[in-house]
Simulated scan of single mutants.
Amino acid sequence: MAVAAVRRLLRPTSSAALSSAGRLLSSTASPPPNRSPNTNSPVSFDWSDDDESPAEPPPTSPAKNPAPPPPYEPFSKNPAAADPVDPTNLQEIFHRMRTGGLTDYAIKMFDGLSKDGLTHEALALFSVIRDKGAMPDVVAHTAVLEAYAAAGPARWRDAVRTYNRMLSGGVAPNAYTMAVLVKGLAAGDRCAEARKYLLEMLDRGMRPNVETCLAAFEAHVRMDKVEEGKALLEMMKKKGFTLDEEAVRGGTVKRGHVFRAVMNMLFGKPS
């Protein structure tokens, strides 16, 4: 019964809903009003008032009647959504969002939340799609943020700008959104920014998973910022968060100087 319910919940949305989701990527002249984080409304990704503008802004118009993707199989071993061949080709990625809708991105978010034990939040996300026929704003913002985060170190400012615009538009991030941001910044060796948003996760009552924490601490090791990493660990402990040693051992490659340095930083042991 539960499996059948999940399958019904994760059926692809209608073409009308996908077209509506595409409008989330449209630029608007005026800032969006305050609203619930689970409503579908125009979102601005116009960085013209910022110091630096991205070279490839998100698309400006949705596709007409895009074909919906095949039904999602929760227990399939295949990835929920295929990653782009070239994550730096933002034009292609934003085109895929516009023409194919955001269902794949919503499924990735559902998977991520579910794997972290946030099943209720994951189901609430899809309830909006099912009951309102609309794509939640958090999905659209996170999809754009993830595209910038995956595009390489040069685009970290665009990822942060997208996150800030998300907040200013009244859209609340979830744990998946924050994890994407932290891991993207860490991959680009932006240690200070990764620290900031990892701590913000805790301030928002979210518990970062091992993968997200390791991304931040491994970045500190790569950049020879071990003392800053230790300070981050202490701040996390003061906020009531501790890392499980066995979970960390299972979540990182057990070899090389990075592993030894991370284990020493977190638990005072080299291996």
Results as ranks from 00 to 15, higher is better:
residue 128 V to A: 00
residue 205 G to F: 14
residue 235 M to W: 01
residue 222 R to T: 06
residue 192 A to Y: 07
residue 182 V to M: 06
residue 146 E to T: 09
residue 220 H to F: 11
residue 141 H to Q: 08
residue 137 D to N: 07
residue 209 N to F: 08
residue 136 P to W: 02
residue 134 A to L: 10
residue 143 A to C: 03
residue 125 L to E: 13
residue 217 F to C: 00
residue 193 E to N: 00
residue 253 V to M: 11
residue 128 V to D: 03
residue 168 S to Y: 14
residue 216 A to G: 01
residue 188 G to E: 10
residue 222 R to Y: 07
residue 147 A to G: 09
residue 226 V to F: 11
residue 191 C to P: 02
residue 151 A to I: 15
residue 124 A to T: 05
residue 138 V to D: 01
residue 183 K to E: 12
residue 195 R to N: 08
residue 213 C to V: 15
residue 148 Y to C: 05
residue 236 M to C: 09
residue 127 S to A: 02
residue 206 M to W: 15
residue 131 D to W: 08
residue 165 R to D: 12
residue 247 A to M: 12
residue 142 T to P: 01
residue 238 K to R: 07
residue 140 A to K: 07
residue 238 K to I: 11
residue 250 G to A: 14
residue 230 K to P: 07
residue 202 L to P: 09
residue 145 L to S: 02
residue 126 F to Y: 13
residue 213 C to L: 15
residue 192 A to E: 14
residue 213 C to M: 14
residue 239 K to P: 13
residue 152 G to S: 05
residue 143 A to D: 00
residue 185 L to F: 06
residue 180 V to W: 03
residue 204 R to P: 04
residue 182 V to F: 01
residue 166 M to G: 11
residue 132 K to N: 06
residue 140 A to Q: 03
residue 242 T to C: 10
residue 163 Y to R: 05
residue 142 T to W: 06
residue 127 S to M: 03
residue 257 H to A: 12
